Amino acid sequence: MKNRRKHFDDEHEEHIDESWLIPYADIMTLLLALFIVLFASSVVDKQKFMSIMESFKSELTGTKIESNTTGLSVKPSDLEHSDQAPNEPQQQAQAAEENIEDQELLDLKGRIEKYIADNQLQADVSLQDTKRGVEITFKEVILFDPGRANLKESSYHTLDAIIGLINTVPNPISIEGHTDNVPIRNSTFPSNWELSSARAVSVLHYFEEKNVTKERLQFVGFGEYKPIFPNDSAEHKQANRRVNIVILRNS
Rank of each mutant, 00 (worst) to 15 (best):
Q92K: 14
Q122E: 12
E59P: 00
P76R: 09
Q91K: 15
E113H: 07
F35G: 14
H81M: 08
S41M: 12
I245W: 01
V212M: 11
G110Q: 08
K237S: 15
R241I: 03
Y115W: 09
H157R: 13
M50K: 10
S191P: 03
H12A: 15
V203H: 06
S77V: 10
K109I: 03
A200V: 04
L106G: 14
E153K: 11
L72F: 03
P23G: 06
E18Y: 07
N186M: 02
V125K: 01
Y206H: 10
N181Q: 08
T29V: 06
L31P: 01
K114E: 15
S233R: 04
K152L: 15
V246I: 15
T188P: 00
L38P: 02
R5T: 13
D145E: 10
Y156M: 04
F56C: 10
R111M: 12
Q122R: 11
S126D: 04
I175K: 01
Y206G: 06
N192S: 05
H7D: 10
E224T: 00
M28F: 09
G223M: 02
D83Q: 09
P190Y: 05
I184E: 01
N87W: 04
L165V: 02
K64R: 14
R242I: 05
L38N: 07
N167G: 08
K214A: 15
P230T: 05
D45R: 04
S233Y: 03
R185Q: 11
R148K: 15
G147L: 01
V212P: 04
S174H: 03
Q84G: 07
Q238A: 15
G177I: 00
V141Q: 12
L217H: 04
R216M: 04
W20Q: 08
K226V: 08
E235I: 08
L72M: 08
R148Q: 14
I162W: 02
N244R: 12
L217Q: 03
V125I: 15
